[in-house]
Design a binder for these strands. Sequence first.
RNA 1: GUCCCCGUCGUCUAGAGGCCCAGGACGCUGGCCUUUCAAGCCGGUAACACGGGUUCGAAUCCCGUCGGGGACACCA
Length: 479
Amino acid sequence: MPPALRVRFAPSPTGYLHIGGARTALMNFLQARRQGGTFVLRMEDTDQGRSTPESVQAILDGLNWLGIDWDEGPGKEGPYAPYFQMQRLDTYRKHADQLIAEGKAYRCYCTKEDLDAQRQVAEKAGGAFKYPGTCRERTEPPAGRNAADAVIRFKMPAGDGSVSFTDKALGTITKTHSDLDDWVMMRADGIPVYNFGCVIDDHLMDITLVARGQEHVNSTFPQLMLYQALGWTPPDFAHLPLILGPDREKLSKRKHPEADVMVHKRNGVMPEALLNFVIRLGWSHGNDEVISREQMLEWFDFSDVGTTSGVWNPEKLLWLNQQWMKQLPVETVVERLLPFLEAKGIQAKGDPRLETLVRTLRERSNTLEDIATTAANVYFRSGITLDEKAATKHLSGESLNLLRKVRETLTALPEWSVEALDGVVKQVSEASSVGMGKVAQPIRVALTGNTTSPGIGETLVLVGRDESLLRIDAALTRG
RNA sequence: GUCCCCGUCGUCUAGAGGCCCAGGACGCUGGCCUUUCAAGCCGGUAACACGGGUUCGAAUCCCGUCGGGGACACCA
């Protein structure tokens, strides 16, 4: 029996949770759950300049909002703790020392400035810079320097050779040693650099499958060299297709605001929809489009993930969000809508109109924010501004007489319900021998200021009895 | 520039040699329904990057070209 699946998501806490990261996390999470494996969350917080506790929290918040739970990681200390790289420095040091002792790594005293200068020259000449190996054979520190201020570099084996691996998504990929160089494993202050910390942790945490974005395929090679040097068996790798912005470039925090998971939350997109959208980038299940978390859990498998990067499609996200607003129980949507109303100064909790509000507006809104906006602009307020064009057309002459009749019937109506209210329209139109539209439009304009709205019964209910009568009276004064 | 990956409708995708003169979805669009707007339903639009092979037969396999993306840090 093969060892149980252990996968991980290893973000660096240097900002909010990125959409690409969220999808990587989601896929790892799904695969682990589906196979009864373990999903580890590890914080790669070794960039001292950019890592912040706030970012750690932001990532945790993002994952929590999406409902992506980790089995081990921050807040869920497991047998492989700690899960923050900055708390694992001793481990890295130990392995780095071992590698030096075995002649597989060495201390390098070249300064960043010198290297940068060399890099510039190389780039000007139109080539890629590779560390020339200045300190490769050095055994003693140069004059005036000591071992403590050296970085540690991996020592590529001499001679020709190549590294290759069979990616679960991309197939076999090979690279020759000559394309690689003696990369920095550890800074002088003992903090590991990505490729080093990543390998040490993946191995020590018994990760069996590393699934990450395709931007990392090239870093797999130096990592593989390290596994080799350490005598460790590397895990399996699966490189997931990238998510591209509308400009077809990798979705990035700098250029694409939609890369932030939480902006979608703020925009009124629900986690179900975001997850649904993101899982369909690079993966599909038959002709299914609206896919629940339960279905993902049942259907998702890395072996079905594609190889081509996908472009962010905001319209589809919005469509999915509406599908989810329609699919989720009304009470659930009401619950989620509350904060959006509150943000507009509307304390609607307990308001009897909420259910009708959601029922009618989710048919014509893409987001919770859309619903809240409409609610604030037309239903949860007193008075309404009439659109002049609409008023001129529907609130004059004979229309006002019909509206007057409606008003009378309304006043006498014992029950203010959608059915009863729609009945009024029918009743008045029949009594006056005119089409229902003739009766409905004046009411609509009087109530909403516009010619478009949900059904009249629903609109009357949403505006409320007292406010409806006031708005109709106001419209009547135009005569 | 070098290396790596990728290439089916505008976009997300189905397609693992014949079931494909290529299916679904978003978008756009025509119609139905209808008290308006939606929603829903029915229909339309639109793609195998190109060129060579292999094969009785290729979107599917091979090669090349072109195109796109990614990586080239003491960032991750």
